[in-house]
Write a protein that binds this DNA or RNA. Structure first.
Lengths: 143, 143
DNA sequence: CTTCTAATCAACAACGGTTGCAAGTGAGCA
DNA sequence: TGCTCACTTGCAACCGTTGTTGATTAGAAG
């Protein structure tokens, strides 16, 4: 994830305006290692800027995703997740609580044999490992 | 996917009733190689049973998924897909039209190193290949 | 610094997929 | 045949997300 200053540059270069709201969003995302939902970003930004609207958060997150500065993920957890980590990596998802963790597994070995490609042009390969996180495992034992 | 007769047995054994609506859904799913959405199943069943409700289709599909007789997939195409193919396999998804195709790629090589497991118990590994299907590729050329 | 204009903002309504609910229906068993 | 409880149905609600609107504001040019 680029720094707020770099993102400011990028937005300006694209003719997009850099408002206080967007700067606040940049700050929240920068260095964020989790995979926040729009709602989460909204609440985080709201602490310093209580008047921001959820709509604005969506707008900016979508702009960032369109520019490739974050990745929008749909991991079946109910809401879209925005990933500031742009390195090649995969994800570990907790089926119970939706927690998402980065995983650097090498998936280059997983190839699709020609005849199975059905004429598709393949642009990306995502691997999702599903399971239960330590916190939820503990809860299950106590339940 | 089991035959309608086998599913009838299973439902009865579980104390679930086998109504004409459910039988019609079994028939539609049996031998279906695509990855139909609830809506698609609803329309297919509606042809022979115009009074069935979408709610009933959801109910039965969820029952089947809970019993492990179909797999519910969330591939980010907007709606859940129900997969009657229970073999170990993965999916090729068209980013344009949402078409889903089965792929028998071997993902056993993709392992998560211990330290990266973050204490998770991993129960499944899904690989999703994204790209453009031949039909949509043709459309893009003409656009 | 002023002015102009397009971009953005906030609030609200709408949307699509899915589920909850209440009332009526029917499957399966004795 | 009759009894029950699960099922079916239609509708309303729900959730995450996007469209729309009128008011506001950043940024460029003069």
């Amino acid at each position: 994830m680029k720094t707020p200053a770099e993102l400011t540059e990028l937005f300006r270069a694209r003719g997009l305006k850099v408002t206080p709201q967007r700067q606040a969003i940049f700050r929240v995302l920068h260095g964020e290692k989790a995979h926040p939902s729009a709602e989460w970003v909204y609440e985080a930004v709201s602490k310093s800027m209580p008047t921001i609207s959820l709509r604005t958060v969506y707008q900016t997150l979508n702009d960032l995703a369109a520019m490739g500065e974050v990745h929008a993920l749909d991991l079946g957890t109910g809401s879209a997740r925005f990933d500031p980590n742009l390195d090649a990596h995969h994800h570990l998802v907790c089926d119970e609580c939706g927690r998402v963790v980065d995983v650097y597994a090498d998936a280059s070995a997983v190839r699709v044999a020609g005849p199975q490609r059905h004429g598709f042009s393949i642009s990306s390969t995502e691997v999702v490992f599903r399971g239960t996180c330590p916190t939820c495992k503990r809860k299950e034992v106590n339940a």
